[in-house]
Each structure stands twice: as C-alpha cells, then as structure tokens.
Design a binder for these strands. Structure first.
Lengths: 355, 355
DNA sequence: TTGAAAGCGCTAACAG
DNA sequence: CTGTTAGCGCTTTCAA
C-alpha cells in the first residue's frame, strides 16, 4: 500500500494531526517539529491521498475544462493556457470534449460539476439559462498562497475556489458573455474592424464577409466589420458558408465570386483556407486577383499557401485569464486582438473599385 | 449540501447498504426494492460522491492521458479516441501535456499515477527504464459490464483496471515498444514502404527521405523506406531536417534540392508541408517538378496546396486500442497504416531516372 | 504547540 | 435479500 499520514506520524513520532498541519498550515507547527516531519515525508515518499482529503475538505483539486472539439486547432492552445496556469495553482485539469453536441455538453456540465472546484467552458453551445443555472452565484474566498515550503505540487492543497451550492460550481465562460456569469471576453468586433480597415487601406472598396449561419463570435465579428465598412465607405457583401470549417469555406467560393468583390474577410482561418483552396481550383490567383483575410491565427494560417493574413485571437492569454478569474485574481477585462499581415492580401492598389 | 446515500436510503426506507448495492450490484437486490430505490435516486438527483467511493474501493474512475504537446495536431485525434472509449467505460479522462519536456513527463507520471486507475502514454520521451518502473507488472481483473440499468455514467462504478502496487499503475504506451509494458503498435515501417512503392510505381528511382535527427517512429519509418528501396532498386537519400516540424521541413529544402531527387518521403506531414512551402518559394513546382509524400494524415494534409499525399496513421483507432488494452479487452495487435493519394505526387512518368 | 476524537460518504464483510 | 458494523485516509474541532 501507499504511505499514509499515520506512517509519517509514526516515523516522526508525532500525531497524525500534527503531520496534517505541517503539510497544510506550516505556520501552526513548531519549526523543529515541522522540519523533522517534512524530512520523513520526503524520506518515505509520502503523497496525500486526494480522495480522503476531498472527502473532508469538499474540494477536489481538479479544474474542469469543456471544449466542443479538441481536434479543432483553435482549442488546444486555449487549453494549453488554462492547463499551464492551473498547474501553477496546484490544480489538475480535467478535460472533456463535447463533440459539438449540446446535449453531451449539458451532460458533462452536470457530471463534471461535482468532481471539480471550478469549470472553464470554451465555445459553449448552451443557452444562457443553462449556464446561469450551473454557475455558482456565490463565489468568494481567497487564493491560497503558493506554499514554497513543500516541493511537490500534490502536497499543497488546492486553492479554495469558493463555496459551492448543490449542483453549482464556480464557472467561467470563454469568448462569450452571459449575464451573471464570469467570462473572458475577446475583442472580436475590433479585430474584424481592423481587418476591414487594412483591406480598405490597400484599396479595396467592395469586400465580402464569409461566415457561418450563426454563432456568438460570428455575430460579433460581422457587426465589427459592418460598422467599419459604414465608417470607411466600403460595401460589405455577406456570404454564408454553412459551417465555420474548411468545408464551409470551400462552399462559399461561388458566392464570393458572384459577389464581384476584390477582397474577403472570413469568419475564421479554416473557412479562409477552404475558400482559398477552392478558388485555386477555379484559377483565381491569391492575392493578385483576390485578397483574403482570416481570423484566429491558428497554426495552419502561416503554413497555408500563400500564408494567410489574419487577426490573432489571444488563445493562450484567454486560457490564463479564465483561470485567473476563477481564482479571483483578475477582473474581466476584454482581451485585444491583433492583425497579422501575411501574403494573402495584395499590395496597395489605387482605387480600382469593385470589379 | 449534495444529496447523499443516506438521504436516498431514508426516502426509500431501506439501509444505505441496500442503496449502495442497488447502484453497484443491481442483481443482488430485489427487483421491487431496486426500482423503488432508483426512483428515489432519480427524484432526488443523487450522485455518488467519487471521493468517498475512491477512498474505500481504491479506484478513482479516472484514466490519465499524457501527451507531449496538445497543440501538435497529431495528438488531439488520438486523445479523442481515448476519451471516447474511456467514456463508454465510465472512466473520466485526465489529460496532461508535458510541453515536450521529459522532466515534466516524469513528474506527471508520478503525480498522476496515484490519482488514476490507468495511464496512457502518448509519444513518451522517457527511457524504457522509467516506463518499466512506473508500469504495474501485475495487471489483472475483469471488465465490469456496462450496466444498462443505471442511466448516468457517473452512477456506474469505474471498471477495475487491476491491482496496483505502490507507485505503480496499469500503463499502456502508444506507438512505441517497451519490453514488459503493454503497447499499441502501429505499422510505421509498412507505411513508409508503401509510400516508396507508390513513388517507384510513378517512375521515381531516386528519392529523398526527410526526417528528424532521432525518434522512435522516425527510425521505424526510415528502416521501412530503406528496405523497400533496396527491394525495388530505388536510391534513397537521407536528408536531416533537425526537428519534425514545419520549420524542420523548411530547413531541409536545400538538402533535398542538392540531393537531385525527383521525389521525397517526409517523416511526417508537418515536415512535408514545411518543405513544400520553402520549395514554392524557390519556384519548384509540386508535383510537376517534385513529388512529395507525407506521413500521418493530419487534417492539414488535405488543406495544403496542393493537397498532400500521405500515409494515414490510425490515431483514433490507436486511442481506442489503448483503452481496450488497459481494460484487457484486446490483445496488442499492430495497427495498419494506409496510403492516401492526393495531388502532391505526379502522374506516372516513365523511367526518367534521377535528374 | 500538540494530541485525542470525531466524522466526511461510501463500500464491504458478516450476520440474520 | 437486507441491515449492522467497521473503517478507507484525511482534516478539524476541542482540550490539554
């Protein structure tokens, strides 16, 4: 069997309570005693039993993360940000994938909630009401300071993410706003606006926005693009591509050509690349004949041919923010986006107007 | 507080043991009693407390998964396979990312081991000895049958993955062979051989293999390519690209051109695409001037321009196999690979020999 | 500053 | 088939 508190207590010739205190509240134990205990802990290779600890503290040390589809390259980087920060805070991440199924998401939400101290929801497909119902409305509590005295992460108790009402859990949603639920917001509208401005600067005055039929960030990006278009005197043509994927982008190609535009802003990089792909097949040269801008800056963007100009979505930072918010370490500021110019947009062409 | 076993027992007017049995060993409870109990379970929304259950059974219901880098598109699909199967088996997956750091991997191995019932190691960077030391050498136990009687996954206890000696855990490694440790093998050599055969069929007789400096599957793929080359009378030129990434592939471009070959087999798709990218820049036309074959068939392969011919690595299946093996549901067969022909290889050209 | 005792929620003998 | 009893390993009063 594994080494238990009792084993350490026996070896250090103290009671189990003292060992327990030495681990979790070092300042409440005489320094000499503590040193002796920690020496034994190390010698015996003692690791606290999480289950036993949870049973009594009510905390698990786990942070749940729910994503719609891990194979969508947008999410792994977000997860990396979450995982990194969680690890720093002695939390172990529990990752679940809903396969884009809202029912599965609802299921996971209720399954995971009791097993974790906090939950990060990425790209949730659930209606606001479900999220509000799941979120703990009474978050509180301080962050437990990183205990430098004890080496292994597991020896440190997990930070207190707040009291949890039955079936509810501290929750944070990423890239979405739900009244009453903490969230990490990202400036989608601003990013889209900057993309339109960029295209306008290059001389484009008739631009297509290729997006999916619906979706939270789609609406934000579209709105941002529309407002910029109005301000700059650009004609914005909406083209719908069914799904926000490579495939969806491919299917939008005909609509784009029909629209008679000289440039395109796509809802995301996947659509942009699908579009480029199909247009290649049509003999359209990019960026000579048509400029394309994507959104997100997933890894593929720079590997595309030609490399894709895009708006960087700060995924890693968003993940970190999410954890910080759960730990009440950060206010819910809006993260900025940034235009990354690559070769999929043409050089400056003086007012040629629409074609 | 949450609903406990005692609450259900009180409501159904039975003892807690009976409720416990109704959940975990339905056949040992009178059908009427059981029905009544399950009705109360549902009515009250009872969910077993995992920590309490773990404490006594010694099982956690968690399956650990360790990957080197989740942002590498190779892994998410593998994880999806694992997660899917694990979920079917009432196991919750605990995913950890080592960031390609062997020390972090060793750390995670020891941190995770006591919290999980089994561990899947993907693309491990650790020496055999570490893996053997961590693996439980005395695996056993039957699979708990999927209990159809109880709806929610969490109500079913996790399957027994075998007795665990101190600090050891049932372990399976994916795409690697370690003596004494269960593993999921994939036919890397065969895939590489088939790629060479394909290129030979198209008329290529001088072919480059572009790989990283080292690595388990690299060696297997290289060996497979070499053997096929000898058999078919093909000259195989090895070109080293430093790392097995897009970048590594780019850096190998000069070497490939210098080698005077008419075709290339890359260690993986990322390198293949990096190589294509750089060659595009050099004005080399693909596949007219040079045919390229990748390996793995990550999603980007078909989005590349031109779409990349590649060898499909059955990631999803490998993930499922891994879980099946942990559950002693499957023998360690070798999974096959498969050539996927796309436009990055040229049409048949009669023996033009090397250039 | 330390120890004794209680108990978190559950399962597993063991009787009945 | 069901209830009683004990205790998993830990933290936390409460006293000393």
């Amino acid at each position: 069997m594994a080494v238990t508190l009792a084993d350490v207590a026996r070896a250090a010739d103290v009671s189990t309570s003292t060992v327990s205190r030495a681990m979790t509240q070092p300042e409440r134990v005489d320094e000499q005693t503590r040193t002796r205990i920690l020496a034994e802990v190390r010698r015996l290779g003692y690791r606290p039993n999480r289950a036993a600890r949870s049973l009594i503290t009510g905390r698990t040390g786990y942070l749940g993360v729910i994503v719609p589809d891990l194979t969508n390259p947008f999410f792994p980087e977000l997860v990396a940000g979450i995982q990194g920060r969680a690890h720093e805070r002695s939390l172990t991440t529990l990752l679940a994938d809903t396969r884009d199924d809202p029912d599965a998401e609802r299921d996971l939400l209720t399954t995971l909630a009791p097993q974790v101290d906090g939950l990060v929801l990425c790209g949730s497909r659930l209606p606001d009401a479900d999220l509000v119902a799941a979120a703990d409305p009474v978050p509180a509590a301080d962050l437990v300071p990183a205990a430098d005295l004890v080496p292994a992460a597991d020896l440190v108790p997990a930070p207190d993410l707040g009291a949890v009402a039955a079936g509810r859990v501290p929750l944070v949603v990423v890239n979405r706003t739900v009244p009453g639920v903490p969230s990490v917001a990202v400036d989608n509208a601003g990013g889209a606006a900057r993309a339109i401005e960029h295209l306008r600067s290059l001389g484009h005055t008739r631009i297509a926005y290729v997006g999916p039929a619906e979706g939270y960030s789609h609406r934000q990006r579209l709105t941002g693009a529309q407002e910029a278009a109005v301000t700059l005197g650009v004609q914005l043509i909406e083209v719908e591509g069914a799904s926000s994927t490579f495939d969806g982008g491919q299917r939008a190609a005909d609509g784009v050509l029909f629209g008679g535009v000289s440039a395109v802003l796509a809802y995301n990089d996947a659509m942009a690349i699908g579009l480029m792909h199909r247009l290649h097949g049509y003999g359209v040269r990019i960026p000579e004949d048509l400029s394309i801008v994507g959104f997100d800056d997933i890894a593929i963007a720079q590997m595309a041919y030609p490399p894709l100009t895009t708006v960087r979505f700060p995924r890693q930072e968003a993940g970190q923010q999410a954890v910080d918010q759960l730990l009440r370490n950060a206010e819910g500021a809006t993260l900025g986006t940034e235009l990354v110019v690559r070769r999929s947009t043409a050089l400056y062409r003086p007012e040629e107007g629409s074609r």
